[in-house]
């Protein structure tokens, strides 16, 4: 099937490479800490959105509780680094691993239930329990007071660059860390969707019954989707924890976090590779640019979700796709001249 897309794929790859290079050269041009701060948050939440889009957009398993995975990984990595003095370079992976495990757990109801409404409620209820746990286990998390004093990533000694710091004024370095995270997530999901698993996800999304009848092991691929997505979201949560270095139950486990990510993915284009990134840029970046809107940020997110679902369900990424790269004629649905 790759042959059919070959010319387009070449151009897409070139465009993607160009965009990545452009993104990575931003700090060469712009050095204001505030702009870098916004871009770092954009990259972290774009990664979160990429992870959620994998399970909801690509595999079609509608879940509304991924902020729990984000929060669990963030708190786990922060607590391990803070209480045991372990390096965040290690605890971040442990946090992501925990995110994966919890992802498995969240996949369990999805194995039994196909109704979107039921799945939405269960995943949401699960996330609420996590938020309440974090908020109530005060000895460990300090509850609503917030977990403070989270260590930053240790400095790295790199060839050529020498000592690179990630705390305090080390914004450009963190920008590259967050960008690598985002690009790696993007590339992994891209590669995953081109593998056998990707085909299974698409089948799953289109019709679970049909996928089952084709002999696709539904349970296996549902687990895979949730676990892979849990890993990506967990990693983004851990990196977030060591970036902002203060966590509160609401800032990571509140429903607002999930709603923001949903808004990003819907605005950017659900089920597209670039959608989450575009959406994160528009929402995180856009809200910061319109500084006056700052106070009405959530109002704006809510309105954007409504407008996106109602008036441009295809999202920005897919709209751009249509403008620049018209699909080959063979893909257009055409009435079969022969018979139904």
């Amino acid at each position: 099937m790759n042959g059919m897309f070959a010319p387009r794929k070449g151009r897409t790859l070139a465009a993607a490479g160009l965009a990545a290079v452009a993104w990575l050269s931003i700090p060469l041009v712009v050095q204001q800490p505030y702009v870098l701060h916004v871009l770092i948050l954009t990259a972290i939440f774009a990664t979160f959105a990429i992870g959620w889009n994998l399970v909801t957009g690509f595999a079609g398993l509608k879940t509304f509780g991924h902020h729990a995975l984000f929060a669990i990984a963030a708190y786990a990595s922060a607590l391990l680094a803070k209480n045991f003095g372990w390096s965040p370079w290690i605890t971040a992976w442990l946090g992501a691993g925990l995110g994966t495990l919890v992802g498995f757990l969240v996949a369990l109801p999805a194995l039994r239930i196909r109704s979107v409404a039921h799945l939405a409620i269960v995943t949401l209820a699960f996330a609420e329990i996590i938020r309440i746990l974090i908020s109530n286990l005060k000895e460990l998390t300090r509850g609503e007071l917030g977990l403070i004093g989270i260590p930053a990533f240790d400095p790295l000694f790199l060839p050529v660059l020498g000592r690179v710091t990630f705390g305090g004024s080390g914004r450009p370095a963190f920008f590259y860390l967050a960008s690598v995270l985002m690009l790696a997530a993007l590339a992994s999901v891209w590669a995953l969707m081109r593998s056998r698993a990707g085909l299974a996800f698409v089948a799953l999304r289109n019709s679970q019954e049909a996928a089952e009848s084709l002999g696709i092991n539904l349970a296996r691929y549902k687990f895979l989707a949730f676990a892979a997505s849990g890993f990506i979201v967990g990693l983004s949560g851990a990196v977030y924890a060591h970036y902002v270095r203060v966590l509160t139950p609401h800032s990571v486990a509140g429903l607002e976090v999930m709603i923001m990510v949903i808004a990003m993915v819907l605005v950017g284009g659900i089920g597209t590779h670039l959608g989450p990134v575009v959406g994160a840029l528009v929402l995180v970046g856009g809200a910061e640019v319109l500084r006056d809107v700052g106070n009405y940020r959530l109002l704006l997110y809510g309105a954007l979700i409504v407008l996106a679902t109602r008036f441009f369900p295809q999202g920005i990424a897919r709209m751009a796709e249509h403008v620049r790269w018209p699909r080959p004629a063979v893909l257009k649905p055409q009435p079969d001249p022969e018979r139904p």
Partner: peptide, 30 residues
């Protein structure tokens, strides 16, 4: 109602009402 006629309505209606929810909360706040 307009979303119900489209494919993927079971998800889009949940997303849209979530959006309405957060928008109304913050409108009330404002």
């Amino acid at each position: 109602q307009p979303l119900l006629a489209r494919p993927g309505w079971d998800f889009s209606t949940i997303a849209a009402t979530l959006g309405i929810s957060i928008a109304l909360q913050n409108a009330a706040l404002a």
